[in-house]
Design a binder for these strands. Structure first.
Length: 263
DNA sequence: ATTAATCCCTGGAGGC
DNA sequence: TGCCTCCAGGGATTAA
């Protein structure tokens, strides 16, 4: 999504910004401040799109589960809108059916009121991401799955990619993070990098809502090994993939390849 | 301070 | 066909 936006938005001026079908609140804060500012760039940290503005503020966008950025007024559930300078397309619509997304202006680029963004782990595809740092971030009694989902040991992993990465390195998703060995952390780090790189190269994973800016679907869903494959054979050993509930999330794993030590 | 559970929200799927 | 219940999940919030 960022790659689409960066070809379009810099350095247009926001002529008007506002909420549409969304209540006032922290998810749509300070949008009026964007009016009159230029969009300097389109950056990303974890799952957050960060658009620095010429007045020192930052437009923060999180797509949540069902968020889509559109160049035309499509259908229902348009939560916010930008009117832009320059030739068409010069309107940006934020459509978010399930309302898990957000679209707000961080004044003076201060993210301290956005908890997850404020304490976000390293970018997985940057040199800041290391096996030793990952291991340090996993020193908790919480499950490896919960830890990888909370964005602190590393940024950007959601439920799909966590299941895929843990299957790749044969770690049970309920394993307490502090039981992960350095050797496992090294493999996990590599698996995360490989899976995210491949997913990005495939244009992402479209299960239902996700679309690129141009409306296309991703292709990585075809490459998924365990996510959404309950009852189908494990690509490694043929055992049926099972689905369980770990960290309040649907979790897919191979009961043979990903045993839980001790019990 | 850490960790676990709850809640938000809508559309689609499945049961009857 | 229509009504009902359940489920999906990122992350903020509340509870323990």
């Amino acid at each position: 999504v960022r790659r689409g936006l960066v070809e379009w938005l810099p350095t247009r001026t926001i002529l008007e910004a506002g909420r549409v079908d969304a209540p006032a609140g922290p998810k749509y804060r300070n949008l009026e401040r964007a009016t009159g500012q230029d969009i300097l760039d389109v950056n990303r940290r974890g799952k957050y799109l960060l658009l620095p503005l010429s007045g020192g503020d930052t437009l923060v966008i999180h797509l949540g589960m069902s968020g889509v950025i559109r160049q035309t007024t499509s259908e229902k559930h348009i939560r916010a809108c930008l009117r832009l300078s320059g030739p068409p397309p010069n309107k940006l619509y934020f459509q978010d059916t399930r309302r898990f997304g957000r679209f707000l202006v961080a004044i003076d680029s201060d993210f301290s009121s956005i908890p997850t963004l404020n304490r976000l782990g390293p970018e997985p595809l940057s040199a800041d991401f290391s096996a030793s740092g990952l291991l340090r971030g996993l020193q908790s009694r919480a499950s490896i799955k919960a830890l990888l989902l909370n964005q602190r040991p590393v940024a950007g992993l959601g439920n799909i990619y966590v299941d895929e990465a843990l299957w790749e390195v044969s770690i049970h998703p309920a394993l307490p993070g502090k039981q992960v060995t350095l050797n496992q952390a090294k493999k996990l780090k590599s698996a995360i990098v490989d899976i995210l790189s491949a997913a990005i190269a495939s244009g992402g994973t479209t299960l239902k809502d996700y679309r690129t800016l141009s409306g296309g679907e991703g292709e990585f869903q075809r490459a998924l090994r365990v996510y959404g494959r309950t009852g189908l054979p494990c690509p490694r050993c043929g055992t049926r993939i099972i689905r369980s509930l770990i960290a309040q999330r649907g979790t897919h794993s191979c009961p043979k390849c990903q045993p839980l030590p001790r019990g």
